[in-house]
Amino acid sequence: MSDLEDLYQEIILDHNKRPRNHGKLEVSNRTAEGFNPLCGDHVDISINVEDGIVKEVAFEGSGCAISTASASIMTEELKGKTLAEAKELFKKFHSMITGEERETTEETGLGKLDVFSGVCRYPARVKCATLAWHTVNAALDGDGEAVSTE
């Protein structure tokens, strides 16, 4: 597989074209806004948490394929997770993308999120892949401030 196909895998292209959970939740109790001042990418996250469990997540915004697919796949992966599990997943995802703890080519244990493992070889694109995640993290922390990748 060429580097490029490694970055733009079929599943990423698919989520870019048909993002899942795209829009704004009618009922939500955690929201946050994230932007990347470098490229003007922007995402709004709304989450509905019940009994400490993420019931629904949706996102809205404009961005490149990497950031759109990352947000889309993230919403699927977060559904049904406890708050602690969601935070843990963010941490793992973040360290995979930034290339920490990745000596082997073995599975990262991140399942579907593994498709983003190629991003760590494109330092200029790390922020694209992590914008939605940073924003969810801020929404779960509930400080309501807009987050920026800078």
Partner: peptide, 19 residues
């Protein structure tokens, strides 16, 4: 998105600005 254009062009050794 222009960023995706920029990344793919970079693979070809082509430097353009996107943003």
């Amino acid at each position: 998105h222009p960023h995706d254009i920029g990344t793919i062009l970079d693979q070809e050794g082509i430097a353009i600005r996107t943003g």
